[in-house]
Amino acid sequence: MLKIEDVGKCFTDGEKEKWVVNHVNFNVSKGQFISIVGRSGSGKSTLLKMIGGLLKPSAGRIEYEGMDIYSLGDKELADYRCNKIGFVFQDFFLEDNYSVYQNVEVVLMIAGVPLADRRKMVEDALACVDMLDKKDDMAGILSGGEKQRVSIARAIVNNPCVICADEPCGNLDYENGEIVMNLLRKQAQMGKMVILITHNNDDANRTDGKIRLQDGEIVKNELE
């Protein structure tokens, strides 16, 4: 279980303090596909970064299986991100000069998975997103939808427990957006926690529960 307890994030601009996320509380269980919705600037991405171990909260705790992730050292936190979290971003964050295979393999390199085991893991992940036939293509020549599928393959290749998807359909057309949402739903059905950040209510309605953020605070929590 992922527990977000009274989490807040404050940024300082000179003497001014701005709480972009404040008093956020919710839990996510295995197999749940939840969405965090809100307008631009409501604090969704900041919250996702904190959940993903990328940004330390100014207040509160984030617990994964009872462990406060920000009590970990830098190396342990990096290991947590590598082994427990899979990220999917709106801008894909793929290396255009790497092949599809290499883009997915990077995660396993970071995780220290032996070379002998990597091929099967990468190919299984690419098969899951229907991109196995393009494994040797350079990522730079793929379409937006294909890139996002590779991004999902990279997010799932190391079998993480949590998938954090930040506006994954933001740069995609309707058809590719559907494919991405179905892939994320499939991951939840396989027992992973899937957290979707979106400003699109249609996408949010396809999840198991919505949390609505406004000015950094929860105004509606359908998970409770």
């Binding site: 990328l54 990096a78 991100r81 979290i85 990220f87 964050f93 290396e95 990077v106 970071i110 990279r154």
Partner: peptide
């Protein structure tokens, strides 16, 4: 910079 950020997201420590 984007590549370095990507490595961070994927769990690569700053030392590596």
């Amino acid at each position: 910079k984007n590549y370095i950020n990507m490595l961070s997201f994927l769990g690569c420590s700053k030392n590596v």
